[in-house]
Design a protein around this nucleic acid. Structure first.
Lengths: 247, 247
DNA sequence: GAGAGTCAGTTAGCGGCGTTAACGTATCTC
DNA sequence: GAGATACGTTAACGCCGCTAACTGACTCTC
């Protein structure tokens, strides 16, 4: 059986071809959420569930990758709103970064397969299209913009040293949050029983580290390529840290 | 043609069944390195290249996932040695952490598909076996041990505050390095033209952040679940950082 | 209202994949 | 030489993504 829909689908009227497109998207997204397995979201399975023949999918999506991309896009459209909603609960810029990060990682932990599709695929693969979520999409998207604005606010209040590159810090923070959450997803158990707690720790550390580095001037990055002046980094750092007041 | 080997393969002698197992592993690893695409490493392609029929693979590996796991294991066996070699060039514990991290990320950037297979796959997928590189394998492996020893050395010299949990810090540093490199692999262009530089930055920031946090006592983690005492975190932090001596 | 056009699908099929069942055959033991 | 058996082979199943070719229903024009 190619498809045996209980009620044999009223065919779309003349101008309503787009209706099926949306229906396919909804079904694919639902199937992905149910199975948490992108392999289970086959073109055939989606078509059957929609109640339509397999090749009909290709009338609305160029290939499977395009369909999955659309699903990711739909899912990620919610993420930025969630992050900004979370950040709105504080007025402190540094805390805003933290809240955004926590929301980001929680979202990923709650939508693992969607996150994997959007952020853990490598370009050039069979199941990955050229139109997929690229670096350009990330930088152009609202999330990156909101994040870098928050970083700029931190620069303004002096958490990051004046003159710091907000884009670089933004990317670094994103990388840290992504690393924590993707590691938790790929290697469950590594973070113990509270993955979100590890993610928060990594995020906070990344923020603090970026702040400290911006004021210290990155060690090992000061003397050109051949800086084998083996100073006692650990000793100096420890001395500085020991003399710190409690927060 | 199922396989047309130039010289029609001498069949293994009675006790030498294991020879083919190794040969398959070598071919699979080579194919992966050549194509940089796990999808190109099909059971059929490997078999043809070895000069053997497809089902013969299953005499030596339970399924495709098991074969890929074996490839990953073989590749990653080199990584720990590389990292320790790099760390041996310094006596400073904190610098040792940094060098290990850089070596780790460089290895991943140079062996992207192998790294992806080992660290960016999620369990429960079709191409992922239960025997795959798990959290337990990581913790039990030499790399994690060497890394946590180095973290302990940093605690001993006071870079991380006395009483810090070395395992937690180790996992956090690993997450940061993983995040930087996996983001560079999944979203090329995000790090600009020098992915390794971004990775190094993220690694250094993670280390500095963990150090600073260990002495500050994590802010936002001090007052129990309902710590809505909205102190001016950014202001306090900025004040502390501004008073820092130059390294 | 009859014919033309085209939108929105269908049926049939290709080549590839991972995997299994059933069958051969070279090699060693006695 | 006669089994026994380790080491493979041939054939096939059911999935997959994807394409070519066709058809029926609607709508527009004359």
């Amino acid at each position: 059986m190619t498809a045996a829909p209980a009620r044999p689908r009223r065919r779309a009227r003349r101008g309503e071809g787009e209706r099926l497109r949306d229906e396919i998207l909804v079904v694919a997204r639902g199937l992905l959420a149910e199975t948490n397995d992108a392999d289970a979201v086959s073109v055939r399975a989606v078509a059957e569930r929609v109640g339509v023949s397999t090749p009909s999918i290709y009338l609305h999506y160029a290939d499977k990758a395009a369909l999955l991309d659309a699903v990711c896009e739909a899912v990620f459209a919610d993420l930025d709103a969630l992050m900004e909603e979370a950040a709105a609960t504080t007025t402190d810029p540094f805390d805003g970064l933290r809240l955004r990060g926590i929301t980001y990682t929680r979202f990923a932990l709650e939508n693992p397969e969607q996150y994997r599709l959007a952020m853990m695929r490598m370009p050039g693969h069979l199941d990955s299209s050229p139109n997929a979520f690229t670096a350009d999409d990330i930088v152009a998207g609202p999330t990156h913009k909101h994040l870098s604005d928050a970083v700029q606010s931190c620069i303004d209040v002096g958490v990051f040293a004046p003159g710091s590159d907000p884009m670089l810090i933004t990317t670094g923070l994103w990388a840290a949050a992504h690393g924590a959450v993707s590691l938790c997803l790929a290697k469950p158990g590594l973070a113990g029983d509270d993955a979100l707690a590890l993610c928060e720790m990594v995020i906070v550390h990344a923020g603090l580290g970026a702040a400290l580095a911006s004021y210290l001037g990155d060690p090992n990055n000061d003397g050109g390529p051949d800086d084998d002046d083996h100073v006692d980094i650990s000793g100096q750092l420890a001395a500085i840290l020991r003399s710190l007041p409690q927060l």
